[in-house]
Design a protein around this nucleic acid. Structure first.
Lengths: 172, 172
DNA sequence: TTACTCATGTAACAAGTTACATGATTTA
DNA sequence: TAAATCATGTAACTTGTTACATGAGTAA
């Protein structure tokens, strides 16, 4: 989590991308965007977003221009250096290719060790919940812009893989 | 992250499972197991594992029995309540079915917005890295016990899905 | 004028990270 | 006896979380 020279946290990278690609001009709007659409990964908590933007501004990758409006609105944009840093973050193949944190995968070897009845209940509940997630994601995906759509499509693929895996377990 | 009544962090749940299912009897061995085989998700840092075990012991779900050996070895086991708490964690369908944190998915909408040359380079590097990950996982999976194997098989499935997705991008 | 939205942020807390400190026992 | 391994842990730090505080502008 050391934040020196060039490396960004996932949240920081996402914030830069949001500002650059979607022209989200204020911290408030960035937060809103995270809360509404990226809620899969983060909550967009004020206590995370505002400090992150402060860090990025201090590092010179975000330019914060006060508007003098009564609401205290501060317009955010990327400096040229910020664009470079953002692109490096997007193109970091090592990080992009790492498997990440997956609560399903983490538990996947343990369901089989449960008492039989408990296991059967758990698998059934799991299947229902995954199916519900897929339905929700499918309904959600139609309304999305080009940045968000792949994210949700990949989430659907992940859930379908889980469903397949659950089928395989039932067969064995 | 509030840790009251029944709820466990992912690390805490994994620790309980490790102790119960694999009979990992000391904090040291739990750490080792995380470092060696679960490194996909965590580092098994001392600063995470020891405090987590302390929390679980204080909550009465782990029984810590000192052996009086010169090395200060403390044998860990689950209390009956601990087994119940662990099973609840394993069977938590809401959490198991959530998509988790995925650095690939997070970036997936952004590669398309890069300058064409940069994009082509990034996609090529990504493909190479994902393929290397798959090769490494396939080599690794043969040597695993029944708890670990599904985890790695699902990681391979995830990487294959990514590869498919990259193919789809190249086609369009 | 009341309520909602825009807009900023801080404080207390949770739970990871690395790096360090300490010492006993076993193996080469 | 020197090095590796077993075994415990703490300290400083990072970066998330929720909950709270403050206030201006806008729409009912």
């Amino acid at each position: 989590m050391n934040n020196r020279q060039g490396s960004l946290t996932e949240l920081e990278g996402a914030i830069l991308s949001e500002i650059h690609h979607r022209g989200a001009s204020t911290a408030f709007k960035v937060r809103k965007a995270f809360q509404e659409s990226m809620s899969l990964e983060w909550r967009g908590s004020a206590g995370a977003v505002y400090p992150a933007i402060r860090r990025l501004t201090d590092r010179g990758v975000i330019d914060a221009a006060e508007t003098g409006s009564g609401r205290g609105t501060v317009l955010l944009s990327l400096t040229p250096q910020g664009v470079a840093v953002m692109e490096d973050w997007i193109c970091d193949a090592e990080r992009a290719a790492s498997v990440g944190l997956d609560p399903f995968r983490l538990r996947s070897g343990m369901w089989d060790r449960l008492p039989p009845v408990r296991k059967a209940e758990a698998m059934a509940a799991l299947r229902r919940t995954v199916e519900a997630e897929i339905a929700a994601l499918r309904q959600y995906v139609v309304s999305l812009d080009p940045i968000e759509r792949p994210r949700i499509e990949l989430a659907i693929s992940l859930q379908l893989t889980r469903l397949d895996w659950l089928d395989g377990q039932r067969a064995s």
